[in-house]
Design a protein around this nucleic acid. Structure first.
Length: 466
RNA sequence: GUCCCCAUAGACUAAGGGUUAGGUCACCACCCUUUCAAGGUGGUCGUAGGGGUUCGAAUCCCCUUGGGGACGCCA
C-alpha cells in the first residue's frame, strides 16, 4: 500500500507552501488509495511550539486535508536512540568534540578564502588516545555520520529523473546533538523507514538533503523509498514566498475571506495540471486526475489575481444562505451586527461582486449610516445648483411611490424622461446619497433593500452636508 | 563562492520530433448596462540566447545567460 507523509515542523503557522506539499501528498494518497501520515517534526525544542502545532492541525482541517495517522518525533526519542546505537556499533558514526564556536570560525575562514565550506573531519581523524582523552575530560560531543568520501549518490526522482551527487561533496552530518537529541536528517530516515513510507513527496528545497539521507538508509540497511521533489512556490518577484510578499500562513488566507475550496483548487494548479482546457475542479476530481507524471519541475509564482478569481467563482457557486453564514463573521468583526433578513437580501445583491468574503464590509452602508461621501462624486453631482434642484424634486416625487425595485425603476425612468435627463443623471447622485460611493449593486435593488424611510433620510442628509 | 535543480506570453499551464504552439487568469475592445461586478464575443502578448542531431526541434544533446534551492548542534 502506498504510504505518504506530511512532516511539518511546528516552528510557525502552516505556511502556504507547506499546505501545497500537504495537498500533493493528500492527492497522491487518495488517488492511490493509500494513506497519509502527519508527522510533527519537533526535535528542535527551542523553536517548536504547541500553538504552531495547533495551527497546523486547524489549517489542515480547514482545508479539508484529513490525515490517517499522527506522530510526534518528540515522542519517539527511544527509537532514534536505538538506531543511533546501531550505527555506532556498526562503526558508521563517530563522536565530534568540535564546539559551535570552533565550527563557526572554520566556516568564516572558508568564506574568507572563498572556499566551499564542509566539515573538515577533525574528529573523524582523532587518534584513539586523543578521543579517550576528550572522553575522560567529559567534553561534550555530537555524533556525526561517516559519509563515504568517494563514489556517487544518485536520486531517482519521480518528477525529475536522476540527480547525482559526488559523495566527496557530502560532509559528515550531525545525527545527534550535544544534548543527545537526534537531528532532522536522522529522524526522517528512521521514521520514514519504520513507518513504511513508500513515497516521499516534499519540496524541492530538500533535494540536497536527499543524498545524505540515502547514505543513512544504506548504513541502517533500510529499503529506499521513492522520492518526488515538487517545485517550490515563489512570490511575484520570484523571491521565496514570505510575509512581505503577501500572506504566508494559511490562517491569514482564512482571515481575509478565502474559501478553502478556492485555495485548494488554486494550490493544486501550481506545478501541476489536470486537463488541457480546464482548471476548475472540485477536490474529488482533482484526486481522480492527480498523477506525479503531471507534476512540473519548475517553480511556480503565486498569483493573487488568479486566486481572487477562483475565490469569486467559488463564492458565486454557493447558495445565498451559505454565503450569508460565511460572511457574517466578517461583518461582526467590523462591528456590524446584521439582521438575518437584511443580510440575506444584501448577499443576494453582492454575491456576484465578492472576491473575498471580507469584501462584504465595503457594503456596510446597508447596515449603518452613511458618514462619508466620495469627494469626486460630490464634485460631479452636487455642485451645480440645477442638479441639486433636480435631486430635490426627485426626492419629493419618489416619496409618493412604493419602494419596490420595478416601481422604482419605472418611476425613475419616466421622471428622467419628463425632465429631459438621461437615467444616469439621476442614478449617480442618488447612489452617492444612499451609499456614499460611486459604485454599488443595481440602484433600485439597493433602494428596495434600504427601504423608503432610510432612503428619504439619506436624501435629506446629503442635502444638508453639501 | 561550491553543489544541485529549473527555463513555453505579465502569471499558471497544454503540446513528450511533424499542431495556424492549445487552455485559464490578467490585459485591451465590443456587447449587455444606472455604476461596479458577473456573463457573452473578439483580440494583443510566448517557446531566454547560441550551437548541434534530424527531412523536420518548444520537444533530444552541448554551451551561455537568467532564476531558484542547499551549503546549521533548523526542519
Amino acid at each position: 500500500m502506498v504510504t505518504v507523509r506530511f512532516a511539518p515542523s511546528p516552528t510557525g503557522n502552516l505556511h502556504i507552501g507547506g499546505a501545497r506539499t500537504a495537498l500533493f501528498n493528500y492527492l497522491f494518497a487518495k488517488n492511490q488509495k493509500g494513506k497519509l501520515l502527519l508527522r510533527i517534526e519537533d526535535t528542535d525544542k527551542e523553536r517548536s511550539k504547541k500553538v504552531y502545532e495547533d495551527n497546523i492541525f486547524a489549517s489542515l482541517k480547514w482545508l479539508g486535508l484529513e490525515w490517517d495517522e499522527l506522530y510526534r518525533q518528540s515522542e519517539r526519542m527511544e527509537t532514534y536512540k536505538e538506531y543511533a546505537k546501531k550505527l555506532e556499533t556498526s562503526g558508521h558514526t563517530y563522536r565530534c568534540y568540535c564546539t559551535k564556536e570552533e565550527l563557526d570560525q572554520k566556516r568564516k575562514l572558508y568564506e574568507k578564502l572563498k572556499k566551499p565550506y564542509k566539515y573538515d573531519g577533525t574528529c573523524r581523524k582523532l587518534s584513539p588516545e586523543e578521543a579517550q582523552d576528550k572522553e575522560k575530560k567529559g567534553s561534550p560531543f555530537v555524533v556525526r555520520f561517516k559519509m563515504p568520501s568517494s563514489g556517487q549518490t544518485v536520486i531517482n526522482d519521480l518528477v525529475r529523473g536522476k540527480i547525482s551527487f559526488e559523495n566527496s561533496e557530502l560532509d559528515d552530518i550531525i545525527i545527534s546533538r550535544t544534548d543527545g537529541i537526534p537531528t532532522y536528517n536522522f529522524c526522517v530516515v528512521v521514521d520514514d523507514a519504520l513507518m513504511q513510507v513508500t513515497h516521499i513527496l516534499r519540496g524541492e528545497d530538500h533535494i540536497s538533503n536527499t543524498p545524505r539521507q540515502i547514505q543513512l538508509y544504506a548504513a541502517l540497511g533500510f529499503k529506499l523509498p521513492e522520492f518526488a521533489h515538487i517545485p517550490l512556490i515563489l512570490a511575484s518577484d520570484k523571491s521565496r514566498l514570505s510575509k512581505r510578499a503577501g500572506a504566508a500562513a494559511v490562517t491569514e488566507y482564512q482571515e481575509e475571506g478565502y474559501l478553502p475550496e478556492a485555495l485548494i483548487n488554486f494550490l493544486s494548479l501550481l506545478g501541476c495540471s489536470y486537463s488541457a482546457s480546464e482548471e476548475i475542479f472540485p477536490l474529488s476530481e482533482i484526486i481522480n486526475r492527480f498523477s506525479l507524471k503531471n507534476v512540473n519541475k519548475s517553480a511556480a509564482i503565486f498569483d493573487f489575481t488568479k486566486l481572487d478569481y477562483l475565490n469569486g467563482y467559488y463564492i458565486r457557486q454557493k447558495s445565498e444562505t451559505e454565503i450569508a453564514g460565511l460572511v457574517k463573521p466578517f461583518l461582526l468583526k467590523a462591528g456590524i451586527t446584521p439582521g438575518e433578513q437584511t443580510l440575506l437580501k444584501v448577499v443576494k445583491l453582492e454575491k456576484e461582486r465578492l472576491k473575498k468574503l471580507a469584501d462584504i464590509v465595503d457594503s456596510k452602508y446597508f447596515f449603518t449610516e452613511v458618514t462619508e461621501y466620495d469627494p469626486a462624486g460630490m464634485e460631479k453631482h452636487f455642485k451645480d445648483p440645477l442638479k441639486i434642484e433636480l435631486f430635490k424634486k426627485f426626492r419629493e416625487e419618489i416619496a409618493g411611490i412604493d419602494f419596490k425595485t420595478a416601481e422604482l425603476e419605472t418611476f425613475t425612468r419616466s421622471f428622467a424622461e419628463k425632465n429631459g435627463k438621461k437615467l444616469g443623471e439621476l442614478v449617480h447622485p442618488v447612489r452617492l446619497a444612499l451609499t456614499g460611493k460611486l459604485i454599488s449593486p443595481g440602484l433600485f435593488e439597493v433602494m428596495e433593500v434600504l427601504g423608503k424611510d432610510t432612503c428619504l433620510k439619506r436624501f435629506d442628509k446629503i442635502l444638508q452636508v453639501i
